[in-house]
Design a protein around this nucleic acid. Sequence first.
DNA 1: GTGAAAGCGCTAACAT
DNA 2: ATGTTAGCGCTTTCAC
Lengths: 329, 329
Amino acid sequence: MMDVAKLAQVSPSTVSLYLRKPAAVSPAAGQEIARAIAALGYVPNLVAGGLAAASSKVVSVIVPSIRNAFFAETVSSLQSALVAEGFQVLLGHSEYGEEQEEALVRTALSWAPAAVVLTGLSHSAGTRKLLQASGVPVVEMWELGADPIDMAVGFSHPQVGATAARHLLSKGRRTLAFLGARMQEDHRAAKRASGFVEEARQGEPRTCEIINHPGAATVEAGSLLLNRALQQIPDLDGIACSNDLIALGALFECQRRGIAVPESIAILGFGDLDFSASCIPSLTTIRPSGDLIGREAARLILSSIHGEPPDGSARIVDTGHVLVERRST
Amino acid sequence: MMDVAKLAQVSPSTVSLYLRKPAAVSPAAGQEIARAIAALGYVPNLVAGGLAAASSKVVSVIVPSIRNAFFAETVSSLQSALVAEGFQVLLGHSEYGEEQEEALVRTALSWAPAAVVLTGLSHSAGTRKLLQASGVPVVEMWELGADPIDMAVGFSHPQVGATAARHLLSKGRRTLAFLGARMQEDHRAAKRASGFVEEARQGEPRTCEIINHPGAATVEAGSLLLNRALQQIPDLDGIACSNDLIALGALFECQRRGIAVPESIAILGFGDLDFSASCIPSLTTIRPSGDLIGREAARLILSSIHGEPPDGSARIVDTGHVLVERRST
DNA sequence: GTGAAAGCGCTAACAT
DNA sequence: ATGTTAGCGCTTTCAC
């Protein structure tokens, strides 16, 4: 920056000012500085900038897994919105572990981030303490319910389960199952399951079981789960899945076993993934809008940073969920 | 750090040393320092550390899109390997634009990253110049071919296309098409397509067309592409797709139109995604191993940073590809 | 093994 | 509108 200043015949602080607020320097000086920057191939050092300004232009985002299409979508839209405002995204995976999350938060805070974004509302006590002590804006996303650390964007998972149950009941289904994966760690999926069971009870079902696959939520897990479900409940006529991948696996398995969908078994998913509108039969599902969550999270962060921290109920944004009815039910 | 030093009754530089090389301080001092850190809830400031050390513990990773399952997988494994060594991942999306990539590289370099990871070998001249001038280790991934900027991990896309063509020919198919999406921007997909056509020519096919969908590679695009292909080539008997999502969409469309797969049309995908083993019929595909690419990229970066920059042919890692034969062909 | 001293490259009062 | 000045919190010689 000193070299640029020398070449442009101004002081370093004018260069710094120009870089941050170009309108604040005279057009003549600005032009000289721009020329000098180009001539020298100057690239500002944001590390030094972050140190001097005591806040780096970085937002740390921690998700359970970036392989999960839900979070990939959210991270993608969150990032686009943030990059447009000059922020970078530092990414972390907790792999659904609270211990790992705490370690990630600790490192994240070492970067003096402008904000921290976490997934869900279940965190270790240490994570909460670290974040509260730091004074950094925090957004918890993909879940609404208990009191958030700072701000939250998401929706109620029990309500998603309830919507699923009501839909299956409305289609006359009474022998029900909820198929989920990794629910010992994925608390949000577990909440969809319990919301499902609770609501289903109102409809006096013959049966309503939760069936869990300990591994990841994949298409293959869906096939396994459908088989397990039929073993336990031979006259099964309606299933809700914690995820569209599982629903697709169940659908394929029905096809393989010659079970008519939706005639014999109605299948309902969650996520409205890429293939859900195209598969045969097309999949009834519940759409959470990971995209909207990302955009709203970015909005909360930006207004929080720009000195207008949202207050009261504006700190919590309910993005809701939408039932997308298709052929599988 | 001064507070910690005061409480532990040592100098700040001893605390700094302890943090970086715990073995270099006496056990007694180490214990005091550890106690002080815990008591004060001290979190080191990596921004200051990065400035003082002139290299931050950050690796910048730029992919076209994190929504793409291929890159999600690679970023995930790359990150796990890097985090284990104390590095953070700064993520960027180029959206398949060279201009955008250049802007991302420019900001990335502002963070004085320990390394930069790019996707593919096609970059703007400015990107190459910036990176070469910076002296930072660079890994280009997911493609092998022309001379890399610094290091590369990936495989040959024309060879993938050739493998696909050979396989279809070996199944007696002679009326062929390659279905791809966004190939005007996704150069790697375009290379698979041209590799396919070139190899197919050796087998004297009746026809061999490339059909492109300008939008994203989705299941729906696959359905559209199959319809377009049949319109152009009514007696089509073999297709290769640039991606398993497209193959799945084609498969669904065949099902909808009552076309037997593989009897009437053989379908071959690329990627071996989650659903490919489970769909009906299961999908023959070519597996590139995004996971391996991520791990190898991490290995190159780490050895490059730790003073043993791989030289000569070790700077280029071919992860190859595997044909996974299933029922759809 | 430990400490003193000199920055790393920039920002942000403040003064002009 | 521009310049002067004093750090931001740490790392890294170098001497002890």
